[in-house]
Design a protein around this nucleic acid. Structure first.
Lengths: 208, 208
DNA sequence: GATTTCATGTGTACGCTGTCCACAATGCCA
DNA sequence: TGGCATTGTGGACAGCGTACACATGAAATC
């Protein structure tokens, strides 16, 4: 499919094709596995063609990272959408947990994309870039913020502790994810992992 | 110093010299910046000489990672040792915080080495390897475990929540560290950063 | 002390990478 | 129809990790 050789000189949508190839490589081996020449090879195009669409390898990786963030947002949204209607307090709690669970699940299911999404340099403003948003139009960071706002509104989180709270929550779940996928905690069985996830989310819930 | 050209055919301690060069490179650019040929260049030796001491580049990076873990442990121990004598409860709390602060401080001061220490594949058993220990002979993971044991002994942490607690604590601090050094939170000013660190540690302390 | 042995360093070479340059093909617009 | 900007090609270069054959010299053996 990707290797389909074209008969026309022009490709059609080379940029997207290269990006797709990059995403595939990232899926298999994380951002470091994204190699520019291989992407052109998979799209049946000469190595230099890539430079018409990406300034350099770094730019390609950044685009892959955006796509990966987007996929992560989609995973979180999927979890979010399973939350049943309930009291504001119940909903707030459930949403916060959904963000954590979705995040962890994505890290588990797509470790390569996860690393592409969260270990490629990008600053705080980028975290709100629509390029990183899911189908619902919100980035992972925004989803977390919303859940925390709900917590405050429901009286579950003192307003004075609200500033910086997303940082706390994110740190905990992100840390677990990293340790699980490329840290000293790889090769943990699913049961232990899910348990650890629940435990961390409990800690956040209780300690925030 | 590293570039000192030797007159003898034999080097003396090439392995250590290559390792030192590798550590320097990791300090400047993280584990990805460790390049084998450059290490040999800095030690004034031919590229292939490295293969007498390291199976391949990966082995060199792993050795650098061990050294970086060791440095991290030293930073934590330094923080640990500033804890004044007090009641068991005070000491336990202070030790737990010391681990967190030391970890964060190392991430801040030596981001390259931090990434070398904590993002290079190594499994759970490795976390206790003496190669990763600090001058006091304990690895970062072990120091955290000790602090948590003290918490239980002092009645600050219910025994039934002790299993997996180091995972929670580590995740939170590690997550913040990663987000700070290469994630969306880079370029945070020192005040905000230290504040965030305190906040996360508070959360752990409260929520564990 | 002479000889053998074996760990350690060298030289050459290969395929891979990212990237630069000049050139070619194409679609679009005047 | 002719010119032009866009997009893809071809060739080249330096740098990387690493394999293979060879050189060196310190230590072990006789």
């Amino acid at each position: 499919m990707s290797i389909a050789q074209r008969t026309t000189y022009r490709h059609g949508d080379l940029r997207q094709a290269l990006l797709d190839a990059g995403i595939d490589m990232a899926r298999e081996g994380g951002p470091d596995a994204v190699v520019l020449r291989e992407a052109t090879r998979r799209t049946g195009v000469s190595p230099n063609a890539a430079y018409r669409h990406f300034a350099d390898r770094e730019a390609l990786v950044a685009a892959v990272s955006d796509a990966a963030s987007s996929a992560s947002a989609a995973a979180i949204e999927a979890e979010w959408d399973t939350v049943p209607a309930g009291t504001p307090a119940e909903t707030a709690h459930a949403h916060l947990r959904a963000v954590g669970v979705g995040y962890l699940r994505f890290a588990r299911d797509e470790p390569g994309l996860f690393r592409a999404a969260y270990t490629v340099p990008s600053d705080l403003e980028e975290a709100f870039s629509p390029r990183k948003a899911g189908p619902g139009g919100r980035t992972p960071f925004q989803l977390l913020s919303i859940a925390l706002d709900e917590m405050v509104a429901a009286g579950l989180l003192p307003a004075e502790r609200r500033p910086g709270a997303e940082l706390c929550a994110w740190s905990a779940v992100h840390g677990l994810s990293m340790l699980v996928i490329e840290g000293p905690l790889r090769d943990l069985d699913d049961a232990t992992l899910l348990n650890a996830g629940r435990q961390v989310i409990d800690m956040v819930d209780r300690g925030l």
